[in-house]
């Protein structure tokens, strides 16, 4: 089991290397990259907005529950700012894009593998990696940091709404604690995290789709494995990124 794991990590590394090499050799088609980025951004925006809305409300409610026990209600704003901007929103946008765009990419590639379209591309001397994997990879790297910033804005906004209307905190006080605890470094760190997650999502979903087994069961199981691995790797990397960026 361990040898199988090490072997697949090695294969994944080789796949990433091959993608880099074919991007280098065949050049990047920026029109397709921008197309992927805008498609991804538009498609994921609605779901992400709904999720960010409810994540912001939850952070406010739980922060209030935790800190009102200590009689320190003003800390709620600080808690929401730190937890939301530094940890939750980058992870939220990452897992959301993994669940939506990542699985879509895996399923698409797996279907192309099933229908032997990838083999057909190779036969026609078109590099399938440069054609199918590199544009979405760069597209996700452009879209995910933007989506992260948008989700931060929505989550903070909804937390203000809940804090003022549902929990009855003072508006000026809350917003003051919220805003004064967000630095430019925090936002930059959130975008760095998003960039790392983007690379993980695109390469992992590309790898599972590219080498999936043929047939409907193969497509299903490739998608399934891809989404689990993406979630685990993103959450684990988040811990290391936090330690490096804030340690």
């Amino acid at each position: 089991m361990i040898t199988a794991f090490v072997r697949s990590v090695g294969r994944y590394g080789l796949f990433c290397w091959d993608c880099g090499v074919s991007a280098w050799r065949h050049g990047v088609r920026w029109d397709r990259v921008m197309g992927e980025a805008s498609k991804l951004g538009v498609r994921s925006f609605g779901v992400l907005a709904v999720m960010a809305l409810f994540v912001g409300t939850n952070l406010a409610i739980q922060g209030h529950a935790a800190f009102s026990a200590l009689g320190a209600q003003s800390l709620v704003g600080m808690f929401v700012a730190l937890a939301g901007v530094r940890e939750v929103c980058p992870l939220l946008a990452g897992t959301m894009v993994a669940a939506k765009a990542g699985t879509e990419m895996t399923a698409q590639l797996a279907v192309m593998r099933t229908k032997e379209q990838i083999d057909a591309l190779e036969v026609m001397a078109i590099d399938p990696r440069a054609e199918l994997v590199v544009p979405p990879l760069l597209g996700i790297m452009i879209a995910l940091p933007a989506l992260t910033i948008i989700s931060i804005a929505i989550a903070l906004g909804s937390s203000v709404a809940v804090a003022v209307w549902q929990l009855g905190l003072e508006y000026g006080d809350y917003v003051d604690w919220l805003v004064s605890n967000i630095t430019v470094f925090d936002l930059t760190a959130a975008m760095i995290k998003a960039l790392v997650f983007a690379v993980v999502i695109a390469t992992v979903s590309g790898w599972f789709g590219f080498f999936s087994e043929r047939g409907p069961i193969g497509v299903g199981s490739a998608t399934n494995k891809a989404v689990v691995v993406m979630c685990i790797v993103c959450i684990t990397l988040n811990f290391f990124l936090t330690t490096v960026l804030y340690g």
């Binding site: 669940a99 939506k100 699985t103 879509e104 895996t106 399923a107 698409q108 797996a110 279907v111 099933t114 229908k115 047939g215 409907p216 069961i217 193969g218 497509v219 299903g220 998608t223 399934n224």
Partner: peptide, 10 residues
């Protein structure tokens, strides 16, 4: 077909 399964999972 296979696409449908992928879409359902997604």
């Amino acid at each position: 077909g296979a696409e449908g399964v992928g879409r359902a999972v997604n």
